[in-house]
């Protein structure tokens, strides 16, 4: 009988862990934007750009 009690406690605490994880993920905004994470993971990280070219972004839009 005591085995059942231990099992009960174990199973409920595992389930509770998932509940907490679920609430945390909602709070964390993981369901807020459903599009970009799926796309983001496909981008390859290129090695950093060579610095010597210099960034030529001015205020000009002309």
């Amino acid at each position: 009988m005591s085995v059942i009690i231990i099992l009960l406690i174990a199973s409920i605490s595992v389930a509770a862990l998932f509940l907490v994880a679920f609430i945390w993920s909602v709070k964390n905004g993981q369901f807020r934007d459903e599009v970009s994470p799926a796309v983001r993971i496909l981008f390859e990280d290129k090695p950093a750009v060579k610095k010597e070219t210099g960034v030529v972004i001015g205020a000009n839009t002309k």
């Binding site: 934007d33 599009v35 796309v39 983001r40």
Partner: peptide, 27 residues
């Protein structure tokens, strides 16, 4: 589109002063 996402999240490559940028695509 996904290109927009890529470009905007790589803003730091265009301007060093940008520390990070994150896009919320739906909004």
């Amino acid at each position: 589109c996904s290109s927009c996402l890529w470009l905007l999240e790589n803003l730091h490559r265009l301007d060093e002063a940008v520390i990070s940028s994150k896009v919320d695509f739906e909004r």
